[in-house]
């Protein structure tokens, strides 16, 4: 297993003269899932994109560091709400996209293992257009795992799925990404309560750490403490917005 570092983001961001988020310090614990929960427009996606080294349109003042002192953006894998599968490429080709883009020879055994793990073996040669939404997100997850990076950034990857498929994907992702430093940006308190080993609520004013449930993640959908946490998170979100 690759060694995943702690990540610390400290700083503030502004778009023009308007503050996007006030100075904050967010720590992602090594090998753990941190769920960043917040409403629209509070800058949670901006934080994720800053870590990934992507365009944000905002001016960030501060720094993003890994506990092992090595570069961050070269060690991330990224998964978004849109599966970002190339429609002209097969499932197998999509999974190995990273290697092809870097001009490397993809590890085909690993590819096949991952595709099998995602229960997609029968769909290897299909185009994304022939798959369901859940299958497409599984391909995207396989592509993310294929990158084999210690830091994984998930930007609401399950929010467009129906409730049952979403719960399935949450289980699958929690298992597959074990041991990596994961940042999950979400607006769904239920998702944060199920998956977060550390949960942080973000608002314009700053971030508030919250107590995650005691059960190990992924928690059962009907676990009482998880449901209570979900309620508490939703209440907090509403208060922050008010």
């Amino acid at each position: 297993m690759i060694l995943a570092p702690d990540l610390t983001i400290s700083g503030s961001a502004a778009i023009g003269d308007a503050t996007l988020f006030a100075p904050l310090i967010l720590t992602l614990s090594a090998g753990q899932w941190t769920c960043l929960l917040g409403g629209s427009g509070v800058g949670k996606t901006t934080i994720l994109r800053l870590i990934a080294g992507l365009e944000t349109g905002a001016e960030f003042t501060g720094q993003i560091t890994a506990s092992d002192g090595q570069s961050v953006r070269e060690r991330v894998a990224y998964m978004a709400q849109d599966d970002l599968l190339l429609p002209w490429a097969s499932v197998a080709q999509n999974v190995t996209l990273g290697a092809r883009l870097r001009g490397e020879k993809p590890d085909l055994d690993r590819r096949d293992r991952l595709i099998e793990g995602m229960r997609l073996l029968d769909h290897m040669d299909k185009k994304p257009g022939e798959l369901s939404g859940g299958q497409r997100q599984r391909v995207a997850l396989a592509r993310t795992l294929m990158e084999n990076r210690p830091i994984v950034l998930l930007d609401e990857p399950f929010s467009a799925l129906d409730a049952r498929t979403r719960a399935d994907m949450q289980d699958l992702a929690a298992e597959a990404l074990q041991g990596r430093t994961v940042l999950l940006v979400t607006h769904d308190p239920g998702e944060a309560a199920r998956l977060g080993q550390s949960i942080v609520v973000m608002a314009q004013t700053g971030i508030t750490p919250c107590q995650p449930p005691h059960a190990p993640a992924p928690r059962k959908v009907d676990d009482l403490e998880t449901l209570e946490t979900q309620g508490a998170l939703l209440r907090l979100l509403r208060e922050e917005a008010a």
């Binding site: 994109r49 990934a52 080294g53 992507l54 365009e55 953006r73 070269e74 991330v76 894998a77 990224y78 978004a80 849109d82 970002l84 190339l86 996209l97 990273g98 092809r100 883009l101 870097r102 001009g103 990158e147 950034l153």
Partner: peptide, 19 residues
């Protein structure tokens, strides 16, 4: 989104163009 993804994969501009 494709360009973002390619960026996190450390793709060269040339590879992004062709692939």
């Amino acid at each position: 989104g494709y360009l973002d993804l390619a960026r996190t994969m450390q793709a060269s501009p040339r590879a992004v163009l062709w692939h």
